[in-house]
């Protein structure tokens, strides 16, 4: 496959940045999107140019590091797929592909396609933990948990914190991420101890960091590579109302 790429290049956070056109040739349809960038970078290095900087780690769709905004979609147009699991067979020979970094005030560009997602860590620090008693390791089955809640908590915990929800949202709102993190604890008995404080603190931090307000467009759910449901946002809203009223 021969492809034309329009890639955002930005040397540093302070740099203006611009789109640069690249041509890649003889790409196998079985190449992953990131491998295609590896091929491009090899060529750039051979030519003595600066390779395109992009985030990646596991390349198995579970770490949440990859973060490209491809042809108008975070992680590309393929549903429930991270950039690393996206393959070139999903594109056509001769396609022009636009690749941009996540765009949001709390996610400043560090270089090229890499953005600083520490804002998510700061939100987690506010309440993404549970109280645990000291002493011996408790029996894993000592606390009964109904199957439905265990499943819902597991679904929420599937969030890899990649930031696609923020990138997709027209308001750059982090509600889907925060609600998934609130829900995974709120649904389980271990998380109930700090439930009220957690939701208040995490929402306050989210607002403070400059994420936008959710307007229920549900673009986040449509674009989430882990298909986190907007019912988590409703649950967080319920939790928030409950915490504020008590």
């Amino acid at each position: 496959m021969d492809l034309k790429l329009k890639v955002w290049r930005q040397a540093s956070p302070a740099d203006q940045g611009k789109f640069v056109d690249y041509q890649v040739h003889d790409i196998s349809p079985d190449t992953s999107f990131l491998e295609m960038f590896d091929i491009l970078n090899d060529e750039l290095v051979e030519k003595g140019e600066d390779p395109v900087a992009f985030d990646h780690d596991c390349r198995e769709g579970i770490c949440g590091m990859c973060s490209m905004f491809i042809n108008g979609h975070p992680h590309g147009p393929e549903k429930a797929t991270t950039t690393c699991q996206l393959h070139m067979r999903k594109f056509k020979d001769g396609d022009t592909i636009v690749v941009e970094p996540w765009r949001a005030k709390p996610f400043p560009v560090i270089k090229d396609l890499i953005v600083d997602r520490s804002a998510f860590d700061l939100i987690i620090q506010e309440g993404g933990y549970v109280s645990a008693t000291t002493g011996g390791v408790p029996d894993a089955n000592a606390i009964p948990i109904n199957k439905e809640n265990a499943d819902l908590a597991m679904d929420a915990a599937a969030c890899i914190g990649c930031g696609a929800c923020v990138a997709a949202c027209k308001n750059a709102s982090a509600m889907l991420f925060v609600s998934a993190k609130v829900s995974q604890f709120a649904l389980l008995p271990q998380g109930k101890v700090e439930a009220k404080e957690r939701v208040k603190k995490m929402v306050a931090k989210m607002d403070e960091l400059g994420f936008g307000n959710c307007t229920n467009t549900y673009a986040c759910e449509a674009e989430c590579p882990k298909e986190i449901s907007i019912t988590n946002i409703a649950r967080m809203n319920r939790q928030f109302i409950g915490a504020k009223l008590s």
Partner: peptide, 13 residues
């Protein structure tokens, strides 16, 4: 909350 927008953004709503 998004000072710089996207060059290409699909309708995802």
């Amino acid at each position: 909350s998004r000072p710089k927008g996207y060059k290409k953004r699909a309708a995802m709503e």
